[in-house]
Design a protein around this nucleic acid. Structure first.
Lengths: 193, 193
DNA sequence: TCTATTTCTTAACTTAAGTGAACGTTTTGA
DNA sequence: TCAAAACGTTCACTTAAGTTAAGAAATAGA
């Protein structure tokens, strides 16, 4: 499992065996059961997550309803806004499957930056890359209809359609579950002719 | 004008006079007339922008129509995805006002990281912060109606409503210009009672 | 295993956004 | 300065999403 993490890091920077030891010694791996809530609205968490296996999602509760806004699967991670702002979190984080994740906090990051300076370079590169990707994602979302978004999701992350409940997908696509059902029926009908 | 840039950087890291000299020597400031296209779809640009004064926007051309997806005003910046991926840009960047901006490329960044190591820390912090903010923004967009988005924009970035054409705002809010007109009329009617 | 709960789909109705067109206003550039 | 283009609003009509409700299917827990 550690190798998955090293592989990810080594896409950005080379690691010596010694450095791998240093990372291993941090003991960041956690096994988490499906449905576990990792962060609640209102909490002031100081930890970020990285998914090695499984899936976690972020969601809001608005007017008593869950609104799922993001899914993080293998080799994706999230540092909740509240870690940076030190304010109460606006959203929840929970696993949607039994998962293996890493849990880290700013102190550990600081440690790492001291021991492996390249590590900060990696974090910068990852952030910059995610920021740019995220912007493109948002752009596509704004310029597409729900139906187009669904079709694009089918192409880009087909696994999500299988592994995640429809009602969570719906808010991810910016519509109500009923609209997602309808929209899927519409697409199916079109493809049949 | 340079002081604006130093003030921004010093929110993240302290700068000595010598370091300020180093930054100044890079000669990154540009004065740009309203409507200037800084990046075109299909180009493989290697530069990022940071707005000191004025406003720039990113837009796509889809089905022959301009779709504006983001505005960057004072003390905001963008590194287009194509700089990182080295692929052709999907979008355009243009000024919406006469502006003063900085223009930088990865080589200059590398230079700076060598001369002022703290500079990389700042870039990491800025990216991390933007990424988290961006995520929250996207979340709010997904979980709101166009009308709610407009009202929130009125509160959060009232200047945009004044300084930017309606049809550009419309796609920024995820609707057609006609819908924005209608939606504004609807809000006005409600507030009058 | 069997029940209770959650999830997904369908349907009828309401509301709002998309579309195409018209028209007055503003901006722009020759 | 003046004509052409771009812009913003309104309207009538179409299409799709929100809402409320019901029922079937899947899931989870006792």
């Amino acid at each position: 499992m550690q190798n998955l993490l090293f592989d990810f890091i080594e896409k950005y920077i080379p690691l010596t065996e010694e450095e791998k030891e240093t990372i291993s010694s941090l003991d960041v791996f956690r096994t988490v059961k499906k449905g576990t809530v990792l962060l609640k609205e209102g909490e002031r968490s100081q930890v970020g997550y990285f998914v090695l296996k499984g899936c976690i999602r972020t969601y809001y509760i608005k007017d008593g309803e869950e609104k799922t806004t993001a899914f993080y699967t293998e080799m994706e991670g999230i540092t909740p806004n509240c870690v940076l702002t030190k304010e109460a979190s606006e959203f929840y984080i929970a696993t949607t499957e039994d998962s293996i994740i890493t849990v880290s906090n700013p102190d550990m990051e600081g440690d790492m930056f001291g021991k492996i300076p390249k590590f900060e370079t990696m974090c910068r590169l990852v952030s910059e890359e995610l920021l740019a990707k995220q912007q493109i994602n948002f752009d596509h979302f704004k310029t597409s209809s729900p139906e187009e978004r669904y079709i694009i999701l089918q192409e880009k992350r087909p696994d999500l359609l299988q592994r995640v409940p429809q009602h969570q997908l719906a808010s991810y696509l910016g519509v109500k579950p009923q609209s997602l059902s309808r929209l899927r029926a519409r697409i199916l009908k079109k493809s049949k002719g």
